[in-house]
Design a binder for these strands. Structure first.
Lengths: 113, 113
DNA sequence: ATCATGCTTAGCCATGTCGCTAACTATCGC
DNA sequence: GCGATAGTTAGCGACATGGCTAAGCATGAT
């Protein structure tokens, strides 16, 4: 039943935060240091560190330390499970669309009230 | 900068919970009553209600009440923003892949330690 | 009218999340 | 070595989340 899917939960949770998404978008341009990432967010370093470790645990970014500088970069294939799940769901959902159509129409009318 | 994107945050957060994902998968088969949804989860009704309202606020399901029975159904197009965001990210990420490749390789070697 | 059913509300508890400050460690430049 | 820089750790406070029970309300069946 795919009850236990820690990967997806970690990924979705990591993506649920606007700050983390903006960090990802920022990292998509080019790898960056922790301080560089903190700048645009307006958040303190420890806070950003936390976000980064959430992203790293979800596998969305990889980091490496060179001297006293930690560099962060995205891990592009990390989004694959999300994409896969989405595709699966869409497949199922659309397969049942005909059956749902009438029902949804009803709901639409009712939910105006 | 797309800083404020409550939609995406709500969606991702709703999807971050295994129980909620299993409810969605269950609803993909056919609309169902609250009690029907509670059954497989092993959770109490109020708990399931909470999950349902999270899903509903995220726009992932729609519900309607007929007599004392509330029926829930998926809203297929609700996943579109997620899909769109994913597509955008993939586009950006892949565009920079060449630049990242070498870096990621380095990280891989280092992160063994 | 009465009772069972189905949902809802209120409220409790444990835990998790997200922000912070303060203090610490580790490098780099001089 | 000394001070500045980059990151890290520890711990706090406010609030959100996810589970529960208990009690309430509305509807359907008898």
């Amino acid at each position: 039943m795919a009850k236990h899917d820690p990967d997806l939960s970690l990924l979705f949770h990591a993506l649920a935060d606007p700050t983390r998404r903006s960090i990802l978008t920022r990292l998509a341009e080019t790898p960056a240091r922790v301080t560089d990432l903190a700048g645009p967010t307006g958040l303190r370093l420890p806070t950003v560190m936390r976000h980064l470790s959430v992203l790293e645990q979800a596998g969305l970014i990889a980091t490496s330390k060179d001297g006293r500088i930690r560099t962060c970069a995205i891990v592009p294939e990390a989004l694959d499970p999300v994409r896969t799940w989405l595709d699966e769901q869409r497949a199922i959902w659309e397969a049942r669309l005909d059956r749902l159509d009438a029902f949804v129409m009803n709901v639409m009318k009712e939910s105006v009230e």
